[in-house]
């Protein structure tokens, strides 16, 4: 067993990720552009069914100029951020508290699993009945969507911590609080990382769906009204923004965080 260095730093890996991505990205964008342009050129009435990339780009310039795009994008992003942060801030302690006592954990596990599987969209109608088509409704759906995956994952994470880790800490004299702080919380970290990523991913879908259904501005609103007004370029633009935003968020923020936690905990060895 020779001594090896601590492993590549996060910054180094981040840089490499960027380099490889840059290459792949250029190839991918060119490929998509060509295929998309060809299809768009071959069909009848492309402005209605599938505007060319250039038409979409032009519409984005137009919307940028009018200030609509930054405003919609900002609305959507703010909803995602506030909903996710509050969802995680409530979900993590909740899962932890349920997980601390094994009997309580076993009892709540199926209930939490149930709610995590009922998507935000499925609860949308009932929330609309309560609060109508409002910002409150969208926020409630995002919060619901973000809360359950993280809470469920934290609960599972705490339950799966080997008892011998807890025993070891207790025989070192750890109090109940110290067991939570030194064993349960760090032991559940990989699940917290995975759960956060899931929660934010689901929340992102919920934001868009919520905006479409409750109609309170935002990217979801933009693609929904774009369809109504026969402005297909805006619809495509909105879809692209939704996808690209998620890829950037996931690739440069959520995935590295998850991978780093899992690797440090020794669950995956490079």
């Amino acid at each position: 067993m020779q001594s090896k260095s601590k492993g590549p730093s996060l910054a180094w890996r981040f840089q490499r990720l960027l380099q490889i991505d840059a290459m792949n990205l250029v190839i991918l964008i060119i490929g998509v552009y060509i295929v998309w342009s060809i299809i768009s050129a071959l069909i009848d009435n492309p402005a209605r069914y599938l505007p060319s990339p250039i038409a979409v780009a032009l519409s984005s310039v137009d919307m940028l100029y009018k200030g609509l795009l930054p405003s919609y994008f900002g609305d959507t992003l703010m909803r995602l951020i506030s909903g996710s942060i509050i969802g995680l801030a409530v979900g993590i302690p909740f899962g932890l508290v349920l997980g601390i006592n094994r009997t309580v954990a076993d009892m709540f596990h199926p209930i939490m699993n149930f709610f995590q599987s009922v998507s935000g969209i499925a609860i949308f109608p009932i929330v609309v009945i309560w609060w109508g088509n409002s910002d409150k409704t969208i926020f409630a759906v995002i919060l619901y969507t973000a809360f359950f995956p993280i809470a469920f994952n934290v609960l599972s994470g705490v339950r799966e911590i080997p008892i011998r880790y807890i025993s070891a800490a207790r025989t070192l004299g750890a109090s109940r609080f110290q067991v939570i702080k030194d064993v349960l919380l760090p032991g559940a970290m990989p699940h917290i990382a995975t759960g956060s990523r899931l929660s934010i991913g689901f929340a992102w879908r919920a934001v868009i769906a919520g905006e479409m259904l409750a109609g309170q501005q935002g990217l979801g609103w933009m693609i929904f009204t774009g369809q109504d007004a026969d402005r297909t370029a805006e619809v495509v633009l909105g879809m692209m923004l939704i996808g690209v935003t998620w890829i950037i968020l996931d690739h440069y923020l959520l995935r590295p965080f998850e991978a780093d936690t899992i690797e440090r905990w020794g669950l995956v060895q490079r």
């Binding site: 080997p162 011998r164 880790y165 025993s167 070891a168 800490a169 207790r170 025989t171 070192l172 004299g173 030194d182 064993v183 760090p186 032991g187 970290m189 440090r264 905990w265 020794g266």
Partner: peptide, 19 residues
Amino acid sequence: GPGPDRGVVFQEHAILPWR
């Protein structure tokens, strides 16, 4: 109950993997 007056070395894998 458990206490620091008695230290235990367990069979295996009882050191904390994140420390």
